[in-house]
Structure formats: C-alpha cells, structure tokens
C-alpha cells in the first residue's frame, strides 16, 4: 500500500480555540477512509485543514501529500494537485453560471497538467453526458452556482464537479447529510463508480448508512481533536451498539 497522505502530529486552531490536538493519520492510494466521531471532534476542521481553509491556523505538525508538505500551499494549488472537497454546505454564488464556473475550474486543472483547454462545445458535451449519468436536470447548466438548488441537488452538484475534475484525493464532508434514501443511493453509486486503484476517498460521516453503500477500507474514530482508534468496518458495529464512549477519552 502506498501512502498518499500522511498527517503528522497536526495541531490546528480556529480563532483562539485549539481544535486539532495532535492528529496522526496515514491514508493510502486507492483506499476509502471513513472518519467518524461525535460532534465537535474536529472532523470538519481536519478536512478544512487539508484543503487550506483560511479560518484554520496550523500551529504544529505537518501534512505530507504525494511526498510534499502542503500546509503552506494556497487552496487552489492544493486543488490543482488533486485534492477535492465536497462541501458540507456548498455556497451559493449569485450570477455565476454553473457551467461557466466548472469549465473555468476544469481548464485551470488542464492547464496545470499541461493539457489544452476545452472549448465551450467540447466542455458542454462532457458536462451533458455527466449530468445525464447522474440523472440531474439539464437546466442546471444555465443556473447560477448552487443558487436555488435543493439540499439534494447541491450535493449532487458536488459529485458532478468531482466527476468532471477527476481528483486524486476526495474528501466527502458529510455528503450524506440532508439526503433522502434515494438520493443517498444515487450519490453512493456515483462515488463507487469513481473508485479505482489510484483514487483515495476520505468520507466524513456521522451515520453508518452511507458506509453500507460505500464500503470503507479503514475506519478512524476522531474525538477531542485526536485519532482515538483505527480499524476496519467492525469499529462501526461497535459504535452502533455502544456509542463513542467505548473508546474512552483521548
């Protein structure tokens, strides 16, 4: 197994509050890592730290991705290196056309890879085929980014972006929240289709349900800013029965 990301003694704070208190975590190429933990454990802060959100300040430790430290990199550089986060609450940007945005993002990535930019027609073809696959409404192409989308549509739109941008390291921050069972199935199926021997997934969730559809290779339990336990799917069963307290305190 090849380590794709190595998180070493990571301490981070938001404002004055220390949230990550020494995270050590290895993630592997082609594997699915589920991150679970109670509210306030630091799950979302961990994903924010990986993608370089400006609210988060790293005070100690490091994140090594593909052999390089990324903690001083700009968010867009990390994105171009293949890190993609599906947002828990995708923002609405009025007036910014969905398709235009996504083409800009894709062409930024293609430029980074030394590829020719896609023209509007080529891109539209790609976009339409993906939209069809996902069973989304085609009219979303003409709408503003996430504006007026339902909760489910927003999440599906995140998946659509993932499919178009083809990232290497995918963080799904509570992709299952606010989804009904049909939408959850659809999203899970799309994620499973994206799984291959190279692509790594980090799934942050509160619930077992999604892990029934997307089987994780590793489960990590986070509590109070530290990784409390690492193991396989059996951890989820234990959690289900006993709750987080069985792992004690960090």
């Amino acid at each position: 197994m090849k380590k794709v990301m190595q998180i070493i003694n990571l301490h981070a704070k938001i404002g004055e509050k220390e949230i990550l208190k020494g995270i050590d975590l290895d993630m592997f190429e082609g594997k699915v890592h589920a991150i679970m933990g109670p509210n306030g454990a630091g799950k979302s802060t961990l994903s924010k730290t990986i993608v370089g959100h400006p609210d988060v300040e790293v005070t100690e430790g490091d994140i090594i991705y593909k052999g390089k430290s990324i903690i001083d990199m700009e968010p867009e550089e990390r994105a171009l290196e293949g890190i993609f986060m599906s947002f828990q609450h995708p923002v609405e940007i009025p007036g910014v056309n969905n398709a235009y945005f996504l083409r800009t993002a894709l062409n930024a990535k293609r430029k980074h890879l030394g590829l020719k930019p896609l023209n509007a027609a080529e891109f539209l073809k790609l976009l339409k085929s993906k939209i069809k696959e996902l069973g989304m409404k085609e009219e979303m192409i003409h709408r503003s980014l996430n504006e007026g989308f339902s909760g489910g549509e927003k999440k599906l739109n995140e998946i659509l972006q993932m499919e178009i941008l083809e990232p290497d390291f995918v963080i799904l921050d509570e992709i299952d929240s606010g989804l009904d069972i049909d939408a959850l199935k659809k999203v899970s199926e799309a994620i499973n289709n994206m799984r291959d021997s190279k692509r790594t997934f980090m799934i942050i969730t509160h619930y077992r349900k999604i892990l029934d559809y997307i089987e994780p290779d590793f489960v990590h339990v986070l509590k109070n800013g530290k990784v409390l336990k690492t193991g396989g799917i059996e951890i989820v069963d234990a959690l289900e029965k006993e709750g987080y307290k069985i792992f004690g305190d960090a």
């Binding site: 867009e76 947002f87 910014v96 945005f101 990535k109 503003s144």
Partner: peptide, 23 residues
C-alpha cells in the same frame, strides 16, 4: 474559498464573483 478549492486562482475567483454580482 469554494472557487479556490476547485482550483480557480484567487484573481479569477474575485473576478468571477464580481461579474456574477453585476450580471
């Protein structure tokens, strides 16, 4: 941040938001 996470540079992201604002 959302736009930058998708690999769009800060300059382009600002311009995109402003254009959207004026659309």
């Amino acid at each position: 941040f959302y736009l930058r996470q998708r690999g769009i540079s800060e300059e382009d992201a600002v311009s995109m938001i402003v254009h959207g604002f004026c659309k």
